[in-house]
Write a protein that binds this DNA or RNA. Structure first.
Lengths: 219, 219
DNA sequence: TGTTATCTGTTGGAAAACCAACAACGATTT
DNA sequence: AAATCGTTGTTGGTTTTCCAACAGATAACA
């Protein structure tokens, strides 16, 4: 535990908790630190869970498998992110399975405890705020990706994504943090077709691009 | 306000708040009831907001507009749902504009107030729980749709969606709550092409369907 | 009952996307 | 400097999807 105490203190969830209250808080949350080796199964779908995971180290993969027993990756979560928070909070049965992409460490927290504490500590307010902030952040992220994907053509998906990047950078000129393959995965399209479409958009005067650098042009 | 007090009491957010505390709570939340006529603009993108909306009546449309000033509908929210909760909680600038699809009533709440109250009322815990539950529920809903859409072909999108429906109904036989057009919109594909693909899936032995009734078959 | 409106499945031509293969480029290593 | 490796853009053939139009089925209504 002590190895990870620094990571915990720096995490979005606990960053604002007063240092002297941290240990007390972790105890109240009935926290458990668990380790997983590469490819180990962390959780399987179909269970009710009470705990939220905070990933202290490593990378985890979320999967779901369908009626015909085919599996499909949903998401990949890294250090600092929350795990299964939606299932834990809503109390619904998990639909996702989790495996470790790399050796990982997860701090499991009984987040509901915080809501039923008798005494009022500073952390009470702080933790709830941080937790809600994280949920809202994730929610917005999902909305953003959904609205990029909710288009019939690759061209429209690209324009939607690039618009948001421009907005985010307060400029029509910016670098994107994704490789072509990563961008294609994000938009759920095929890489080479997307590259071709980017060239086509440049030809049509929507933008200028070279590698990760983009300049959007009003037509 | 009194016209809507019943709706408020029945809402997911306030349902569990003790009746005698409700009025006090609404005051603490600095609540404001606002009305909007059909097509009226409720909010425009690019602002920081502090309040969460609870839709007491009507239907609202969420839009975003891109770099080239083209607008695109993101979502439609109905009575009982929360509005702009992610922006209010995370404190980030709104990217969405909201207009009224029908005449509507929205109760605006300063949700952050609940986290800084001195006294501890029952509602304190209850409201936060309800609020977090709602966020988690919405989050899961977004994840679900994303994973249905995160496929390259219409066939895969359909199989993903139908698998989840089967899981949800604990049976390989079920009715879906969407018309063909609604399903096509949900999956971001073209209706007639989707219908054709459903016929093809039936021909290939994945399922039997007639109107809204489906039977999935192991191959 | 007959009329109308809505929803669904089918079809064919046009457009878009997939897919595999390859070449150009840049960065890194030897 | 040469070789290697990963990334990106291009191309051509094939598949899938879009799109518009239409016909049959179903439900709602007069």
């Amino acid at each position: 535990m002590s190895d990870y105490i620094k990571t915990i203190k720096k995490s979005k969830l606990f960053r604002r908790v007063p240092e002297e209250e941290l240990e007390d808080l972790l105890e109240h949350l009935d926290s458990q630190l668990k380790f997983y080796s590469k490819d180990q199964v962390v959780l399987t779908a179909g269970r009710r869970i009470k705990r939220v995971g905070l990933i202290l180290d490593g990378i985890l993969n979320l999967y779901e498998s369908d009626f015909w027993e085919r599996t499909h990756q949903i998401d990949q979560l890294k250090q600092g992110e929350l795990l299964m928070e939606n299932f834990a909070v809503s109390g619904s049965v998990t639909m996702h399975s989790v495996t470790a992409e790399t050796a990982s460490a997860v701090l499991w927290l009984n987040i509901r405890e915080i809501l039923t504490l008798d005494e009022k500590h500073t952390y009470n307010t702080v933790l709830i705020q941080s937790f809600m902030r994280e949920m809202a952040r994730k929610n917005l992220q999902l909305y953003t990706r959904l609205s990029d994907m909710d288009r019939l053509t690759t061209k429209e998906k690209l324009l939607s994504f690039l618009s948001k990047e421009a907005l985010h950078h307060h400029s029509n000129e910016f670098d994107i943090p994704l490789s072509r393959q990563q961008l294609a995965d994000y938009l759920s399209v095929e890489r080479s077709a997307m590259s071709a479409e980017l060239s086509e958009l440049a030809r049509q005067g929507y933008l200028i691009t070279r590698k990760n650098h983009f300049i959007l042009l009003k037509k």
